[in-house]
Design a binder for these strands. Structure first.
Lengths: 194, 194
DNA sequence: GGCTGCTTCCTAGATCTCCTAGGTTTCTGC
DNA sequence: GCAGAAACCTAGGAGATCTAGGAAGCAGCC
């Protein structure tokens, strides 16, 4: 019998495709084995367990995503860069819902710290904000605001939470406009009252 | 042997508590039955299946959440109302992570339409924005922006995605400030270019 | 070619999950 | 005190994760 030629990389890539097709939470070792025409026990030579498989999908997706964002942002600054970042972010989330969902799982902080992709993501995000002239801690606050809005919008859109008869793409553009306004008129921090 | 006294309501309430303790995705019919000291098959008299149980948790949580938000917003307007809404939203999400996660599942649109809690949520959200003087379609765009930011922030915070050494509560307050700025300087819609 | 050894893949099985079908037992209302 | 309606049970199928240990394909080396 010829072998399927499994490797960790190929298994994870197939798992990511599977996630996009059936949803991240429906990625199962058995289904993945079926896809390769192999018994499920065979996959445990390449992946420690289901949790390991999931985090590997997450890192794969995180790398792919930041590559696309970086390419979109390159050579732009200010609102131009913001819009390019945002559009690349949302495009990836819509094209690869399963992969995108993987990027939202809780991951061991030690693994995160030594991930080149996540470091690169932070660099590019902070770099994109440079034109707005913010300094710490405003910079971190602004990054958190952007991440929240981007992720929240994509998550809600993906679950069909935007039911109103208004084009979802238009609302997205307006959200970017609004964020740009916030960043250019970044409010000074008030002393915490009472 | 005395009976456990199960009803659909009690089952769902216990499931919601379980979700807050072990995470929404770890809510299982078996674990719930164990909690009641009952065989898992017994629960299927009160709940159709796991999916039904999950959506019931979602509606329970959605109702609780909007009640707390409504109480917080009552009698306030403008930025005051915005901050009260946001803080009540985040407080609920942090206190009840399992319940909150339930509110984010995909739910049949027909069920959503006839849900009083969700209708109330829409009313209160749109009402809170009244002071900003927006009209459609800007109003819907603004609501989508707020929902996205609130949900995204809580989701990212819950998964430990905010690792930087900056107080998470402070960043939240700044995000609200920034949203207020956006709403008061809501940008006019540009004609879609090219 | 043939041998050695690593890697790949398998069989077998324990344990957990969801869910159905149909039977008993407890409680409630008359 | 006795129907009838719940509540709860046993039994069992299907499918999931994961382990332990065995067999079979594919290198490189003589």
């Amino acid at each position: 019998m010829p072998r399927a030629g499994l490797t960790t990389e190929r298994v994870v890539a197939a798992a990511a495709d599977l996630a996009d097709e059936v949803g991240f939470e429906n990625v199962t070792v058995s289904a993945l084995a079926r896809r390769f025409g192999v018994k499920d026990a065979s996959l445990y030579s390449h992946v420690r367990n289901l949790g390991d498989l999931r985090t590997r999908i997450a890192f794969l997706a995180g790398g792919e995503m930041i590559d696309r964002i970086a390419a979109a942002v390159a050579g732009r600054a200010g609102k131009d860069a913001l819009a390019a970042f945002a559009d690349a972010y949302r495009a990836y989330a819509l094209e690869h819902p399963g992969r995108y969902a993987a990027t939202q799982i809780r991951i061991d902080q030690a693994l995160v710290a030594e991930s080149p992709a996540l470091r690169r993501t932070a660099e590019i995000t902070y770099g994109m904000l440079r034109a707005y002239g913010l300094t710490e801690p405003d910079l971190t606050d602004a990054v958190r605001l952007l991440r929240s809005t981007f992720h929240g919008y994509c998550a809600l859109e993906a679950t069909g939470a935007f039911a109103a008869p208004r084009d979802v793409r238009r609302s997205w553009d307006r959200a970017i406009d609004a964020l740009h306004v916030s960043l250019t008129h970044w409010p000074p921090e008030e002393e915490p009252h009472d």
